[in-house]
Design a protein around this nucleic acid. Sequence first.
DNA 1: AATTTGCGCAACTAAATGGTTGCGTATATA
DNA 2: TATATACGCAACCATTTAGTTGCGCAAATT
Lengths: 106, 106
Amino acid sequence: MKRDVFQAIADPTRRAIILLIAFQAMTPNAIAEHFDTSRQAVSKHLQILTECQLVKQEQSGREIYYTLDGTKMKEIDKWLEQFKKIWESRFNELDKVLLKLKSTKK
Amino acid sequence: MKRDVFQAIADPTRRAIILLIAFQAMTPNAIAEHFDTSRQAVSKHLQILTECQLVKQEQSGREIYYTLDGTKMKEIDKWLEQFKKIWESRFNELDKVLLKLKSTKK
DNA sequence: AATTTGCGCAACTAAATGGTTGCGTATATA
DNA sequence: TATATACGCAACCATTTAGTTGCGCAAATT
């Protein structure tokens, strides 16, 4: 049952929830209204997102507002960073080849 | 059965495979040797990665080499981009508040 | 004080997932 | 030509997942 950030964002509904609460804090009911799901289903998703520390809660009376916590999102970015470097070097290699072709054509 | 990039990278083994073949093309057997899994299991993961266009095949005799295709990876980056903007504006807002506090203190 | 509302939690269900085993086929090697 | 190797594919199995239903509790409304 140990879940990580990558599993958290794997579900499309969860990604939509993330996007929704990124702009403003919302209650489970308010979130559910935006989708074709029940409050309970949303609640479960929020539970998972909370577990993965992508989301923070803020109680206000009997209502609970959920907000996005950007910190963990950066982990995904960090993972992508590895490949960016590889791509860049690949592209550079490609550039060199193209440049060579260009010059030999002349 | 319709899978997307986010589901593809949800599995830790799949992420490891991606990282592995990012540096050099590899056959399913060679990949499997790096993990505690069977060739068939790896093959299934590669199938999913191919389905999501994260991976490309290159046949060489009876061997099939798999390579990373960076194009789809950028989709993840694009998705993250949305939030980066929000974070930045949030930080800017925070900066303003801090600046205000600073000036009123004087 | 009684009722409504917002929520989390637990039990349950159908579907998806990751894995195994056992094939068939094509290429390489003896 | 016979055998070994590399692989994909299909059937099968255990576990996880996303979702529903039905509670119970606390805060708000009447």
